[in-house]
């Protein structure tokens, strides 16, 4: 079934390119208008802070957290952070959406904490934080440049070692993978943190690995007599390393699912982001790279055949001049 599906896509590079282009353009438009959906740690927020002394923090922290969470039943907080100051003060901060009105919650919580701990000073404050910088623009620009250079180097190495068609196919698959991942994140509004650049680099690595499985098979097939006699489409269809790619991708997905399942909620979001990048790189390496390789190989073979003709014909213009 996998083979039939792949064979159908190999003959349709234009269709795949159009679909991908539409998604990427939509992603760029949505990104330009709404930007990324920033995760709590890199976004503006309203911070409700419960400040207490070290005795309460060491001995009654669970009770304090319980009271806080009961008070927050009607509002959803993004994440909590425990802060320990060397000295007397400790605090728990809860991050909320910047637009959330926390005046009522603050008063209710302060009253409940006063009732539960009448002999201790526990203060509740609400502040609004506007992120100035969690990542400089130069960081993102350099990440994009690094990704682009990676794709160019992959093209150069593969083109020199093998042929232009293979180099172009791998490089295009990597470019597409990066652009599509960016677009998918923007369109699906998956929360983005500084770790997004890690996921993008991971995406490029997986695309390069998975695509190389196919092109290794292409080289192997071309060395055989049967392979030399095949048409480009037959060669590509018989060489797509479906089993190897899917085993590698599934193993990676299981590893990521384990990381997400076992670890905390926020880690789960990171695992989901990585899974999305993995799916995109699978598409690029398994379907797009072979689909785009076939026409490129045909052009390359045609040019090679022209140059190799024993009765090499000059082009029409020069023959007329002669």
């Amino acid at each position: 079934m996998n083979k039939k599906f792949v064979n159908r896509t190999i003959g349709k590079p234009l269709l795949l390119s159009v679909i991908v282009a539409v998604i990427v353009i939509a992603g760029i438009v949505v990104g330009a208008i709404f930007g990324f959906n920033k995760a709590a740690t890199v976004d503006d927020m309203k911070l409700l802070t419960v400040n207490m002394d070290s005795f309460v923090y060491e001995t009654e922290l669970e009770k304090v957290e319980e009271i806080c969470e009961e008070a927050f039943e009607d509002v959803s907080y993004k994440y909590s952070q425990k802060g320990v100051m060397s000295g007397a003060d400790q605090e728990i901060s809860y991050a909320f959406d910047k637009e959330e009105n926390l005046d009522t919650v603050k008063k209710a919580l302060a009253d409940e904490l006063q009732k539960a701990f009448p002999d201790f000073e526990i203060r509740v404050t609400v502040t609004t934080e506007t992120v100035e910088k969690s990542l400089p623009t130069s960081y993102i620009v350099r990440a994009a440049i690094a990704g682009a250079i990676f794709c160019v180097l992959a093209f150069a190495y593969t083109a020199i070692r093998h042929n232009l068609a293979t180099g172009s196919a791998i490089s295009l698959a990597m470019w597409l993978s990066g652009a599509l991942t960016f677009a998918v994140f923007t369109l699906t509004r998956i929360p983005v943190t500084t770790a997004f650049t890690y996921v993008l680099f991971f995406n490029l690595i997986v695309t390069a690995i998975a695509a190389s499985f196919t092109f290794r098979k292409v080289d192997e097939t071309l060395k055989t007599e049967a392979g030399k006699a095949m048409s480009v489409d037959e060669l590509t269809q018989s060489s797509v390393a479906t089993k190897e790619i899917l085993i590698f991708v599934v193993a990676t997905a299981i590893a990521l699912v384990l990381v997400g399942a076992i670890a905390t909620h926020t880690m789960r979001m990171f695992a989901i982001s990585s899974l999305v990048a993995l799916v995109v790189s699978t598409f690029s390496a398994w379907l797009f790279a072979p689909a785009v390789f076939a026409p490129l190989k045909k052009v390359s073979d045609k040019n090679a055949a022209k140059r190799a003709r024993y009765d090499y014909k000059k082009d029409k213009k020069t023959s007329e001049e002669a």
Partner: peptide, 12 residues
């Protein structure tokens, strides 16, 4: 130095 707080990992 006593004004500087430590916080736990973002991921828990």
């Amino acid at each position: 130095a006593s004004d500087i707080r430590t916080f736990e990992p973002v991921y828990g």
